[in-house]
Design a protein around this nucleic acid. Sequence first.
DNA 1: AAAAATATTGAGCATTCTGCCCTATTCAGG
DNA 2: CCTGAATAGGGCAGAATGCTCAATATTTTT
Lengths: 178, 178
Amino acid sequence: MLPSSIMHSLDKVDLQLLRALCTDPRSTFVALAQQLHLSRNTVQARMARLEESNAFLSFDRRVNPVALGYPLTAFIEVHVQQKRLTQIVAELAQIPEIVQAYGMSGSTDLLVRVVCTDADDLFRIDGTILACEGVDRTETSLAMGELIPYRVTPLLERTARRVGPSGSTGGSPDEVTT
Amino acid sequence: MLPSSIMHSLDKVDLQLLRALCTDPRSTFVALAQQLHLSRNTVQARMARLEESNAFLSFDRRVNPVALGYPLTAFIEVHVQQKRLTQIVAELAQIPEIVQAYGMSGSTDLLVRVVCTDADDLFRIDGTILACEGVDRTETSLAMGELIPYRVTPLLERTARRVGPSGSTGGSPDEVTT
DNA sequence: AAAAATATTGAGCATTCTGCCCTATTCAGG
DNA sequence: CCTGAATAGGGCAGAATGCTCAATATTTTT
């Protein structure tokens, strides 16, 4: 579930902090303060606020599955009987190789992200998914490579440019002008 | 591109470290050492080794796009003229809302992950993608919700159980027995 | 099996960082 | 203008870090 605690909007300082952390995730508060010409107390307060407002997702996302021995990533579209959706999700959550699942609009019910050791492993996992009661059909696509690695820094930089000195991302970024 | 520097396999201690970091990403080395009954130096050496071997992906992945003002996530299957794939990817990388793109097997050429502010924004981004020379067709699916939030901890825990006291994940995890 | 290489341990030191407190100033909203 | 929130800068004690070192344990190689 998406967090429901986004209680404040991010201003330029927040964005700069996030950007700096993307550059060096182990930055100390002191270093961040120097880099951004802020007081250390401010960095501390801002970071606490970002934590509280769920600006940071889980550390899991930084763990490279390849390093764990799971070099393959696949996306499985899962077509289900709607009335059993909740149970199915609970069952899928018991499969460790399923690292994420979205409920989707349109003709796909679930988009399931899977990591696996090899093609046979993928086939096995697919079978496990299909064995769940209420799962009608799956369509598997193997990711051959991450051509654009996950990044938000272009967004951070653009949004920071747009909001100006002390503005915030309240509402839609596109509504904010410099 | 996937990192090509996975030069060593993770043993149980590495996995436990990663697991502990998933629980508390701001853990100090001292705290980790106490928690795992290790010497602080060992934690330090292990963390350095994990860093060097690309066990950690970018911090970007921890930044919640919702907090940035991008509450919607969508997956766009992009069908392209193969010979222009490289140029297309370069062009797609110029679009900040595209946060990730996989080259896929099968009938889908690219799976593009997009964050956006609303449905109109998504429609606009889709148009931008379609405007790239060599892009034939797109199919957009809107993620309605993250039913299983991204997690690797079940994998970490299972692999740690499997490898025993000092084993490692060299090769396929399924080949390792306790 | 023995030797060599590597990893771990625990101790230590100087430096830096953190959590927290405090007061003064600035900023933003009514 | 007033008020509350945020920022700044200073401070303190304790904790953490980066690094060194020698001894020990473990793993790998011969």
